[in-house]
Amino acid sequence: MQNLANSFVLLTAAKNEAKYIGVTIESVLRQSVLPKAWHIMDDGSTDETADIVRRFARQHNFLHLHTIASRNGGERNFGAQYRAINKAYSLVKAEAFEFVCMLDADIELKSNYYFRSIIDEFERDADLGLAGGYIYERSGDIWKCRPANSPTSVAGGVQMFRRVCFDEIDGYQALMYGGEDWLAQVHAQHAGWKVRSLLHLPVHHYRPTSSAGGRLKGIFRMGMRDASFGSHPAFELVKCARRAREAPVLINPLVRLSGYFWYGLKHKSPVVPSDVVQTLRKEQIQRVFEWTKRPFNRFISSDKALVGRDESLR
């Protein structure tokens, strides 16, 4: 039997998450293996987020609340989120542990063996550097597998790193339009580490992706993020065409394309290294060729496997 005590730390950045953070904490407390420490960084919440965390922290000594000053009032900022995560990691860096896990404050772990299962996966594969569960989001009264899920891409809200991998890539790089989780994943893969998302470990994501501050605003930002990573124009056009059936029909892909081209008007170049952009674009063009070989009616379908591979390339 493995000795999993004190094997990992948990890090969370929270801002105005009073509606969901209690559910997140309770799902962690149900786990068969608990973290050595859980540091929750309250980034200037104006609701009851800190009070809720504080109540749980009084009962569980591994849970720690830290309040940091926010420069953005009540507005969420993805760069600020990952700066908070990096600050949390600096608090535990001197301690001994093998894995570091990021958990968003609006995530519910559905399996009580979630952490145990991921650590077992790491134990089975010494080359595995990053792993996590599959995101499910609510559609009406039904929880559905998020189309962007992919076996080779781990969502930022549930990323667990082998510590040596996380240290090797120097953690997260805060970016203006998001994508810190994807960039960390790319750096891990470039360093020779495997990345794996585990279908048998569902997690419920209570706030739909990019819905903070308004759905359309989030989709526009996603287009800007794609451009900031150097996503190929042809790939972006094809990807948005494949999403043409998403409700509201045509609106979402057009808004995303607008964000993509708006970035090009405002900025001169991507924010990631040129060699990463070249690798990304080469893979994207290969994907476009694969898609164009399919009949047009399947080309714009919402096939989950292809959508997942699409998102893994941003």
Score class of each variant (00 low, 15 high):
E75D: 12
I107Q: 02
E48M: 09
F56G: 10
S231V: 15
E137M: 08
W291L: 14
S231M: 15
G79Q: 13
R225C: 13
F97N: 01
E26L: 09
S45V: 03
G308K: 08
I169D: 05
L183Q: 09
R298G: 13
P147C: 03
H39V: 14
D42W: 12
A94I: 03
E246M: 15
N252T: 14
G214F: 09
M176K: 14
P253E: 02
C240K: 14
F62R: 10
Y20C: 06
T12N: 10
G22F: 04
L199H: 05
A227D: 04
L280P: 06
H60M: 07
R83L: 11
L130C: 08
G214H: 05
R207V: 13
Q278D: 09
R76C: 09
R196S: 10
Y89F: 15
Y260N: 10
I119A: 01
L130N: 00
L254G: 09
M224T: 06
R163Q: 01
M224F: 03
E121D: 10
F235E: 07
C240I: 01
D106T: 02
R215P: 00
V23C: 06
W143E: 09
P253Q: 04
F115N: 00
L10M: 11
F220M: 10
M41G: 08
R243P: 04
P151D: 13
L183F: 14
G140T: 03
L4Y: 06
H232T: 04
G308V: 03
E26Q: 14
K19G: 00
A105M: 05
S45R: 04
P147W: 04
E236V: 15
V271M: 06
D167K: 10
V307C: 13
F261I: 06
I135D: 05
L103D: 02
F97Y: 15
Q59W: 05
H200G: 03
